[in-house]
């Protein structure tokens, strides 16, 4: 059995700075992170940071805003201007941040419960207004941080600590809600689809307006174990087996359950003026030269 190749070339006095490309984006003094073995959140971070490089995003002008939950911890690990805000309110914080300093690129990175239960109202209105935000939702079908409670995305029949006999509620289909609310870019991938996800992140960085990316990731400790679905790798294998790529699919038809297809791809890509563009354009007409845009 071979060993891994050593980092060193004995012929070179100074070694090349070979390090995991993700490391330069992380607050290394805070490693290791708190996520469980087999949790998919770290995988999404790899894809996100790879896309930052691929898209040439200026890191000094990038800000990450997250809410509360396991995915909410992403903000704390990224070496960017990062804001770990209150439960459900990352989007309005991000709205204020972006409107106060429009040259910022603002990304909201949070979980399904944070963004769609307590945060649902804010999601709807930011999408409606086409606030210029990229919203990344890691959907693990549960409230992981607090021990595995029912989430608005939990599939019917799944067991959770607050649905101890099985979930009898109907889950929310996130891309459907995002499209209905007005999002201009809507995509869904799983952590199996690392290359597609990276490319979608890059495409999202190249666009403006309210962009929504849902990423299915396993919560092995709580969702998978409680429902006897194995480890994280088993969860990702299931994504591989059940997913089918359908770009442009009708978001009304792509709900998720414990069985059945997992439809992934880019579903919506329809630019329209952002909130601030609309405001500037409108007030420009109303006031002409007297209008003072932000910073103007």
């Amino acid at each position: 059995m071979s060993q891994t190749t050593p980092l060193e070339d004995p012929n070179l006095p100074i070694q090349p700075p070979l390090d995991n490309p993700v490391m330069s984006f992380l607050r290394q003094e805070r490693m290791p992170h708190i996520w469980c073995p087999g949790c998919g959140i770290g995988t999404t971070v790899n894809c996100f940071t790879r896309a930052l490089t691929d898209a040439g995003v200026g890191l000094d002008r990038l800000a990450i805003v997250s809410g509360i939950g396991c995915t909410g911890r992403v903000a704390g690990y990224l070496n960017l201007d990062s804001f770990h805000t209150t439960h459900g309110r990352a989007i309005p914080f991000a709205t204020g941040l972006k409107l106060a300093r429009p040259e910022l690129q603002v990304v909201v990175y949070s979980g399904d419960g944070d963004l769609f239960a307590i945060g649902g109202n804010h999601f709807l209105h930011a999408a409606r207004r086409n606030q210029d935000l990229m919203v990344v939702c890691v959907n693990n079908f549960t409230y992981g941080m607090t021990g595995g409670q029912l989430a608005p995305t939990t599939p019917e029949g799944a067991s959770q600590t607050t649905a101890p006999f099985g979930n009898f509620e109907s889950p929310m289909s996130l891309p459907y809600v995002a499209e209905a609310a007005g999002a201009v870019f809507v995509a869904r991938w799983t952590v199996y689809h690392v290359r597609h996800l990276t490319r979608t992140f890059k495409e999202a960085f190249q666009r403006k307006g309210f962009r929504f990316i849902e990423i299915l990731a396993p919560c092995p400790t709580l969702f998978l174990r409680r429902n006897r679905l194995g480890d994280g790798v088993d969860g990702v294998r299931v994504y591989k087996e059940r997913s089918v790529i359908r770009d442009g699919a009708d978001t009304r038809t792509i709900g998720l359950g414990m069985d059945g297809e997992i439809v992934v791809g880019t579903f919506v890509d329809r630019p329209r003026p952002t909130w601030m563009e609309a405001m500037d354009s409108y007030y420009g007409k109303v006031f002409g030269d007297r209008y003072r845009p932000v910073g103007g």
Binding site: T85, R89, T95, G96, L99, P293
Partner: peptide, 24 residues
Amino acid sequence: GGVFIQMEDELAASIAILGAAWGG
């Protein structure tokens, strides 16, 4: 020269201003 936004509720309004403060 600036922004007024009527948010969807007071929860949003009270944190949007904090985001704006960190935006300078």
